[in-house]
């Protein structure tokens, strides 16, 4: 009953890497410009992308690259397990800026709706029609031990037949994302030690 990793994808330092292969590079320092170039390059074609906050943009793009490049159908009950450090800080600061000035007090519903980190789970679930288990956790750093334990518990307790695990961190122009799928059919070792080598 050991679970293994299928494919994995990383977005960091201006690069998109899928299973050790660099698929795209862009030196653009501005996060918004960078993530838009990734979105265009991989022809994700999901206009709602433009309405999203930075966390949802990063999450939907990395999940799409991984899932669209994986063979076979996506399990209906694939669970989503997302984590990061900064929650949805950019859109939080944006919303905060609209309520600080009493004379220019116009909080935006379109911003406010993104001021919860788990909205990223909702966006992925909608795009891939996943009526499945999903949860968003916060740690100071990517926590491979927790990811392994919780993903295994979802599978072993029959809550899901596979799990999409991710670290999706974005804070202004600093971003770092790592996603992988794990299931009993995965071929690559799913352990704390191995995950550490993949995200190094």
């Amino acid at each position: 009953m050991n679970n293994g990793i299928h494919h994995y994808c990383r977005i960091s330092n201006g690069q998109v890497i899928l299973d050790d292969k660099v698929l795209f590079t862009n030196e653009e320092k501005n996060f918004d410009g960078f993530i838009k170039s990734v979105y265009k390059h991989f022809e994700i074609d999901y206009p709602k992308f433009y309405k999203m906050d930075p966390l949802c943009k990063l999450s939907i793009v990395i999940a799409s690259i991984l899932l669209d490049n994986s063979e076979g159908a996506i399990e209906d009950d694939m669970a989503l397990l997302l984590s990061n450090k900064s929650s949805c800080i950019d859109v939080d600061l944006k919303h905060q800026s609209t309520i600080e000035d009493k004379d220019d007090y116009y909080p935006s519903p379109a911003n406010f709706v993104y001021t919860l980190p788990n909205i990223a789970l909702g966006e992925i679930s909608i795009k891939y029609k996943l009526r499945s288990e999903n949860s968003f956790f916060i740690f100071e750093d990517f926590n491979p031990e927790f990811m392994v334990d919780y993903a295994n518990s979802l599978i072993h307790l029959n809550k899901a037949s596979s799990v999409l695990c991710a670290w999706v961190e974005v804070n202004k122009d600093n971003y770092n994302a790592f996603v992988y799928k794990v299931s009993p059919n995965g071929k690559t070792e799913h352990s704390k030690e191995h995950l550490k080598t993949l995200i190094e």
Binding site: Y106, P107, S108, P109, A110, V113
Partner: peptide
């Protein structure tokens, strides 16, 4: 529906 709410804010602002 969220866009509709946003348009309501625009009318006000």
């Amino acid at each position: 529906s969220i866009d509709a709410l946003e348009l309501i804010v625009m009318l006000d602002k």
